[in-house]
Design a protein around this nucleic acid. Structure first.
Length: 205
DNA sequence: AGGACGATTAACT
DNA sequence: GTTAATCGTCCTG
């Protein structure tokens, strides 16, 4: 194992909503060039929760059948689903639930904890803006296409999540997901975005 | 083959 | 509040 606290595959083998909530306070680590870059997860969103249809979720494209892009989502839990969007941004998700279900959790914001000097070189801004958005955190941690499909629970993983701070239910807030655009109701308003209350690193949108 | 658009961000009025 | 940047993916024909 990379760390005694590295989350096992069983952690991810639950509904996306459950995993999204339990991921708050945990630490995402990218082991890059022999050094740890990472931070505490403070915001996450569930997509294609359990077996409910979720239009607008990538897994619902192509009539709910896997495509080359979404294949990883349909695979077993505990793997990274990394995709490219808007012609310039990378997004990091963890695959959850049962194999074949296309469930995933988007990591939307972190509190920087390790490798700050690397993040600083990659992002010319005040520290609180380094990782307060899904495409900002991937840039800060150096997450790109080669991590798509990477195992998060393996003994020699290069990216994984560790148990860290315990966040109580009363410190967690929930609300509609961000940036859904044309996603129809009821999914547009489903409260599947979770974040730590009063945390300065949560995305502002 | 072609076009619309995106789980976003930074810059500008 | 509005908009450009920038290109892979999916849907239509």
């Amino acid at each position: 194992m990379r760390s005694p606290r590295q989350l096992p595959q069983t952690f991810y083998a639950r509904s996306a909503r459950t995993v999204a909530r339990r991921l708050l306070g945990a630490r995402l680590v990218h082991f890059d060039q022999g050094r740890r870059i990472g931070g505490r997860i403070v915001e996450a969103e569930a997509y294609c929760d359990s077996d409910e249809p979720d239009l607008g979720c990538h897994g619902s494209a192509n009539k709910g059948r896997p495509t080359s892009r979404t294949a990883v989502m349909f695979g077993p839990p505990g793997f990274a689903y990394v995709y490219f969007t808007y012609g310039m941004h990378w997004m990091f998700n963890v695959v959850t639930g049962a194999e074949g279900m296309a469930n995933a959790v988007l990591i939307r914001a972190l509190e920087p904890m390790e490798g700050l000097e690397v993040m600083a070189k990659r992002r010319q801004r005040p520290e609180w803006e380094w990782t307060n958005g899904p495409a900002k955190l991937t840039q800060a941690l150096g997450i790109e296409r080669e991590l798509n499909g990477a195992s998060l629970y393996g003994a020699d993983s290069v990216i994984w999540i560790e148990a860290d701070e315990v966040v109580g239910d009363d410190a967690i807030a929930a609300g509609p997901r961000i940036g859904l655009g044309n996603m129809p109701e009821p999914w547009h308003s489903m409260p599947w975005r979770f974040w730590i209350r009063h945390n300065p690193y949560v995305s502002r949108a």
